[in-house]
Amino acid sequence: MNRKPSVSLTDTTLRDGQQRPGLCFPPETKLRLLRALDAGGVAIADAGIPAAGSHVKDVMRRMMAERKRIRVSAWNRMRESDIRDAMEVEPDIIHISVPASDRLITRVLSKSHAWVEASLVRCIGLAREHGYTVTVGLQDASRADIPFMLRLAAISKAQGADMLKLADTVGTLTPWQARTLIRSMAQGGLPLGIHTHNDLGMAVPVAIEAVRAGAAHVDVTCFGIGERAGNCDLFSFVECGSPVLSVTPALWQAEDLNKNAADILFSAIGIHSGTQTEGANRGQAQPSFP
């Protein structure tokens, strides 16, 4: 009998989720959500961007003091100054986000592959020098060149990174493309994660297919909140993935977490969660973020 592939979750509600324009969670809400995620069996909280300022560093320090099992990850652009900001928080994980597609590297940043490779060496090196666990995220991986991403994977592995996350930044991956992407990048020799967006209404099945192809980690947000059409919804991923995946948290934990997260996040924006009904995304009764 085939064993189900195992997968753990990074919740990025407090970082990528909160990038939904106009959304702002107060520090106490962030701490309450972290406690709920911790109790709910989520492995990692992508909890904020320390380089954004002291208000983020302060709340992340409190998270570090309060966390029990969950690991707190600090998100960074591929800049040494960002890594230094993150180290002020002393997080469990320093995550470095790397522009991977030519569209981002040349058209947006006016840089080269060589610049990306050299910057990655420096940034991982800085964090590892200070003893931090490092994860690397490849931005716009769904539109990037596989051989170049394999070079970045090799650099990440050689510099001591623990995981490589592939971000479908614009949410256009299909299930079959996700499978090809993961199988291609498995040659890089690092554990893989997937970060999906819901622009084509398939963030959950694309993430499931990525895990079936070999990804061990999935980024999610509570209620799928995030920029544009949002991210991979935590509860939907666990519910839809459980028949074929061994997901941590288990479905019963995700149900409790979903209720707790609704209480915490809906009250933060002045809405009683009980008044919400699921929107058209899923077509059944469950809380839905407005």
Binding site: Q19, R20, P21, G22, N198, D199, L200, G201, I225, E227, R228, A229, G230, G279, A280, N281, S288, P290
Partner: peptide, 15 residues
């Protein structure tokens, strides 16, 4: 819903 994939009215909001 305002963030519904494709027809949502707010999917092209960016900050």
């Amino acid at each position: 819903p305002a963030h519904q994939p494709v027809p949502g009215k707010n999917i092209f909001d960016v900050s």
